[in-house]
């Protein structure tokens, strides 16, 4: 855990110094909302359509972070440095997943207000608690699957292509659950609380993938 904390600290410090990932994620999400506004020719969205637009936007932004997650390790010797140290390999997974999770939360701090402002989904304020709960679980899926896929892709030659094409199908179940969970919350007659089913599906999918990724991560970073 101390090792994971050290890596996470280093990653956040690097992001603070370079500001490479987060601003791009935020900009991309806002641009995506604008594109959806024109593409759908709607000033406001509600229900399942709004949920779909928001989920896809999150996915786009997450893809940026996922593509960059291990690039510094790969290009600046971070992997070697880490492998030389007498520490548990899983710490790297924990730290990177935590970093990705933090990036996603930070992005949502911008993207959710922008979504409310630009596409005015009804009842967002009313069902905010359930909405946030679903987002946290979705962020868990992005973090776990994203870290795994990023670690897999970073050693390939075409990592910018390999990451998304493997990541999208793997994330689909989580995206289905997120979109279906958010949809009813943004209807005009929303009750304000999400269906338990989707919360459970997301939580279980997070857990399942986390266990799988922790078990297999060592094989991905070894030389």
């Amino acid at each position: 855990m101390r090792t994971a904390a050290a890596i996470l600290r280093k990653d956040l410090l690097l992001e603070l110094r370079t500001l490479e990932t987060l601003p791009s994620m935020a900009l991309l999400s806002i641009s995506t909302f604008v594109i959806f506004h024109f593409g759908l020719n709607q000033d406001s969205l509600s229900g399942q359509l709004a949920a779909g637009v928001f989920t896809v936007t999150l996915l786009f932004a997450a893809m940026l972070a996922i593509n960059r997650l291990f690039v510094a390790e790969r290009e600046q010797g971070g992997f070697d440095a880490f492998l030389l140290a007498p520490v548990d390999r899983t710490a790297m997974f924990v730290a990177k997943a935590a970093a990705l999770f933090i990036f996603m939360v930070a992005l949502e701090l911008v993207a959710v207000p922008a979504f409310a402002l630009l596409l005015a989904p009804p009842r967002l304020g009313h069902s905010l608690a359930g909405f946030v709960l679903l987002l946290v679980l979705a962020d868990g899926a992005f973090a776990v699957i994203g870290t795994f896929v990023s670690a897999l892709a970073v050693h390939t030659r075409a990592r910018d292509l390999i990451g998304p094409i493997i990541g999208l199908p793997l994330m689909l179940p989580a995206l289905i659950a997120t979109a279906r969970g958010i949809g009813p919350l943004l209807r005009a007659n929303s009750s304000g609380s999400p269906q338990l089913k989707w919360l459970l599906v997301l939580a279980l999918y997070d857990l399942f993938n986390a266990l799988l990724a922790v078990g297999l991560f060592d094989y991905l970073i070894e030389e």
Binding site: L14, T18, Q76, G77
Partner: peptide, 13 residues
């Protein structure tokens, strides 16, 4: 202790 071709240092830190 390894001192290789790569410095194993992050350029932006």
């Amino acid at each position: 202790g390894l001192l290789g071709h790569e410095p194993l240092l992050y350029r932006d830190l």
